[in-house]
Design a protein around this nucleic acid. Structure first.
Lengths: 209, 209
DNA sequence: AATAAACTGTTAATGTTTTAACAACACTTT
DNA sequence: AAAGTGTTGTTAAAACATTAACAGTTTATT
């Protein structure tokens, strides 16, 4: 029933911010929140907030605001955050390490269940109850565990090869931190997280007039 | 002279991809590139590419394509990549480590000249010829060195405090990896790099119909 | 019960980005 | 030299996103 109307990236970003904010309010025991409260907290116009929530099929009460628990439910449902999917990290260098240690896991959507590396000195060590495995095991583990998403933090030169392995193992999504364009079957969703991009954007935005 | 026409984020992202691609062609000794070559390589329509380059005040030759060296120059100039600015990293955990080790530095715009942390066991160690300094030195070093940009990779709880220090020291830009909204003077450009966002986007995009 | 106030839901207007289309141009071939 | 071809520069249309506005609802107040 939930019509999967295409959502702009900007809108997804905003909704994620709303969610973060209202989940915090929820922890504080608040029941209702108004569009202006959200807007003020995040530095945007209340009307913008209302329209985004309108798109969700919102159900606020005039003079009172939106029921927080309901709104949280709507957004989590939209993002499919309550179906916990399995994820793995491939490449346990500094970046892989940093990502593995992030508190984003469990905050919704994905559960980190495996880590792979090809460095013999890394293989076998335990990090947050996850043992680092040999890259050779990728295919089998993805199949066996039913892993849906792979975070790729290997060097650019290895990225395409890894991507082919995980795709053939039946992965559904790739979060690619390698600065390389991956060629994948179009059933696989790829999110490229280029770090260099942030740097260039800053350079551009601070360019002297 | 260069009219600083506002550029959408999407367009900046695309131009960065073009730059990466054609700089690679340049290394290979190629002289000219056509919009279709770029489009095919990056998976987008050639018309889209042409229009972006049009916005730059492009100068391609029909039947031949764009002169690579000229195009590289235009984009680097647009992004202010040839004026090398100084940057520092604050927070030398795994993420700070990963960023410090990235090859994005020097590829343009910013030069990493300082690293700070508050962990006594980290302070003093050298990484890529940069000695990790005590966080207490931030203000002085930014002033003395004329550092323009700070990468913040400290925990969310410390982010606002650090941000105030660097702002008062006269920083011009902040690249914020902490999951916290920073309140800054509006002369300072802030780029928030939320990692959680990529995760949620993937969850959303792979949601079963 | 009537009035006022505080919000939301929704529509309309505006602005922006993407897509499509094609005329103009420069090379190549005959 | 004329016709043909591939590619750009530019315009126009369509799609999309943002902003603004306000009518409609619910609650509070008198």
């Amino acid at each position: 029933m939930t019509k999967n109307k295409r959502l702009s990236r900007a809108c997804v970003l905003r909704l994620e911010l709303y969610l973060e904010y209202i989940e915090q309010l929820q922890k504080e025991g608040k029941q209702y929140v108004t569009s202006s409260e959200i807007g003020d907290a995040l530095g945007m116009a209340s009307g913008n907030v209302r329209q985004d929530l309108f798109g969700l099929g919102s159900a606020g009460r005039p003079k009172v605001g939106y029921e927080i628990s309901h709104l949280v439910g709507l957004i989590r449902e939209l993002f499919d955050l309550d179906r916990t999917k399995k994820a793995c990290i491939i490449g346990f260098g500094n970046l892989g390490h940093a990502l593995a240690g992030s508190n984003m896991w469990g905050r919704g959507g994905y559960n980190l269940v495996a880590i792979f590396d090809n460095d013999p000195s890394a293989i076998g060590i335990e990090y947050r109850n996850i043992r680092v495995r040999n890259i050779a095991e990728i295919f089998a583990v993805i199949r066996t565990e039913g892993i849906e998403m792979a975070v790729i933090t290997v060097p650019a030169t290895a990225a395409q090869e890894i991507s082919e392995i995980v795709c053939s193992a039946g992965i559904r999504a790739i979060w690619n931190f390698a600065p390389a364009k991956l060629i994948t079957p179009d059933t696989v969703v790829v999110e490229n997280q280029s770090l260099a991009w942030g740097l260039i954007t800053l350079s551009h935005r601070t360019k002297p007039a």
